[in-house]
Simulated assay, not measured.
Amino acid sequence: MTKAPSTRSTDDAARNDGTREKLLLAALELFGLYGFEGVATRKLAERAGVNLQAINYYFGNKRGLYNAVADYLIERLQIRVGEQRKVVLDRFAQAQSGGPPIDAVEARAILTMVGESMLTLFADDESAVWVRYMVREQAEPTEAFDRVYAGFMQPMLAAVRHLVGILVEADPMTERVRLRTLSLVGSLIIYRVGRATILREMEWSTVGPSEVAAIRGIAADLVAGIRPFGESTT
């Protein structure tokens, strides 16, 4: 007599056939393009090439899928910049817990590394899909933004803010240092959200290895401009 497959075996097979990730990839793209309200569950399933019921099976409902996309985005960011992020956060934690303090030379080197990593990531076509999703969340924040902010952005911003504070010789918790930190981050993000303008202005047809190298070089220039308030950069 043939033994019927167990429920657990069936569930494992379902999890391993890639359906969940197909839905996440489709949702990341479509939600970024059209927003939560602009995408029907049927359209999500069609784009993923899966059964409509798979959304409820894996995520409960469309909102559950939308929030899961935020967690998936964090996972992808960790894969792409996880090593550099760990270096920064570990060194920051070491300094905060009584270890060797970070001086201006080290702070500048770490910030340059962070900037180069961000610019390399933004030059990649994969990041375009991520940014569209996050731009919508910036305009109308939901629980998904809270997840990405708490899970990835906030710890990194705190560390970068600390490094900026060292360079400007000011308390990193002050309003001015916070704004200076956001200004630095914004100067990096423009190389993704302003891609069309950059291509037109630079007369580039694409962003290949040589263009990425040129863009990466901007990181050091941006960080070099961070100096104590009132001090000339010339």
Score class of each variant (00 low, 15 high):
1 M>F: 12
8 R>L: 14
9 S>R: 10
10 T>C: 04
11 D>N: 11
15 R>D: 14
20 R>V: 04
24 L>A: 07
25 L>Y: 00
25 L>P: 02
25 L>G: 00
28 L>W: 02
29 E>M: 08
29 E>I: 03
30 L>D: 02
30 L>W: 00
32 G>F: 01
33 L>R: 14
33 L>M: 09
39 V>I: 11
43 K>M: 13
44 L>G: 02
44 L>T: 00
51 N>V: 07
52 L>T: 04
54 A>C: 06
55 I>D: 01
55 I>A: 01
56 N>F: 07
57 Y>I: 05
59 F>Y: 13
66 Y>Q: 06
66 Y>G: 02
69 V>G: 02
70 A>Q: 03
71 D>G: 08
72 Y>F: 15
74 I>A: 06
76 R>V: 07
76 R>D: 08
77 L>S: 00
80 R>D: 10
84 Q>M: 12
87 V>R: 02
87 V>L: 12
88 V>C: 03
90 D>Y: 08
94 Q>G: 09
99 G>N: 09
99 G>R: 13
99 G>Y: 09
102 I>N: 00
102 I>F: 06
110 I>C: 01
111 L>Y: 01
111 L>M: 12
112 T>V: 13
114 V>Q: 02
117 S>Q: 01
118 M>S: 01
119 L>K: 01
119 L>C: 04
120 T>S: 12
120 T>E: 08
121 L>F: 11
121 L>H: 09
121 L>K: 03
125 D>V: 10
126 E>R: 15
129 V>Q: 12
132 R>V: 02
133 Y>C: 04
134 M>R: 05
134 M>D: 02
134 M>Y: 02
134 M>Q: 07
136 R>H: 10
138 Q>C: 11
140 E>D: 15
140 E>L: 10
143 E>S: 12
143 E>C: 08
144 A>T: 10
150 A>Q: 13
152 F>E: 06
152 F>K: 03
154 Q>D: 15
157 L>M: 14
161 R>N: 08
163 L>E: 03
165 G>E: 03
167 L>N: 01
177 V>N: 01
178 R>V: 05
179 L>S: 10
179 L>W: 11
180 R>L: 06
182 L>H: 05
185 V>G: 00
188 L>F: 09
189 I>Q: 05
191 Y>Q: 03
194 G>A: 12
196 A>P: 01
197 T>R: 09
199 L>Y: 07
202 M>Y: 11
203 E>F: 05
203 E>C: 06
203 E>N: 15
205 S>W: 05
208 G>T: 12
209 P>S: 14
209 P>Y: 04
209 P>L: 09
210 S>C: 14
211 E>F: 04
212 V>W: 03
216 R>A: 07
216 R>L: 10
220 A>P: 06
220 A>C: 13
221 D>E: 13
221 D>A: 14
223 V>T: 00
223 V>M: 03
225 G>D: 09
225 G>L: 11
228 P>C: 10
229 F>S: 13
230 G>W: 04
232 S>G: 04
